[in-house]
């Protein structure tokens, strides 16, 4: 009886392990090579719902807590990163205005951890509308998200 119970518990544990998402550090050839900076960071908040007007393209500035700096000289705990057309999956977002951007992140959610290739100043990479709800705060440079992958911890 006891052995049977152990077997059932073991079986359940195996199911749980196999069903849980595999950890993924978000590394791929693009994120490790694009731009001058590469970080893993957690999105702290989304200040307000992203505008949903398909006729108009825009970039939205988001606030991140830096977890790891993989490339580039960055000495900041918090970074402000602009994502282009944030309602779109990153692998479908690139167009004429944005240039070469992408990643595997499907949906931008507060609390999410992202591995990103970045560069700045944003004006050198992007020419279009920017919504920056942190404008009146001291943000330092706004970084342009070139490649954004999901990180599963």
């Amino acid at each position: 009886m006891k052995n049977r119970l152990h077997a059932v518990l073991l079986f359940l544990c195996l199911i749980c392990i196999s069903c849980s998402p595999k950890s993924d550090d978000g590394e791929d050839p693009r994120v490790t090579s694009m731009g001058r900076f590469e970080i893993t960071a957690q999105l702290l908040e989304i200040p307000e719902p992203f505008p949903d007007i398909p006729l108009y393209d825009y970039a939205y500035v988001l606030k991140y807590k830096v977890l790891t700096v993989h490339r580039g000289a960055l000495d900041a705990d918090v970074l402000y990163v602009a994502h282009y057309n944030p309602l779109k999956p990153r692998d479908q977002v690139a167009d004429v205005r944005s240039g070469d951007i992408g990643g595997n992140l499907k949906k931008i959610k507060a609390g999410g951890v992202h591995r990103m290739a970045l560069d700045e100043p944003i004006d050198d990479f992007y020419m279009g509308g920017i919504i920056n709800k942190y404008f009146e705060q001291e943000t330092g440079p706004i970084y342009w998200a070139l490649w954004t992958n999901q990180v599963i911890q």
Binding site: Y58, G129, I130, K133, F135
Partner: peptide, 28 residues
């Protein structure tokens, strides 16, 4: 360009530009 991103027009007297851009955190 200081945030101007499209529709740049030079004034007839040559002293100014006008355009559409980002200003104070607002687009358009």
């Amino acid at each position: 360009r200081k945030g101007i991103y499209q529709q740049l027009f030079w004034s007839p007297d040559g002293k100014w530009f006008t355009g559409t851009g980002n200003h104070a955190g607002a687009q358009w």
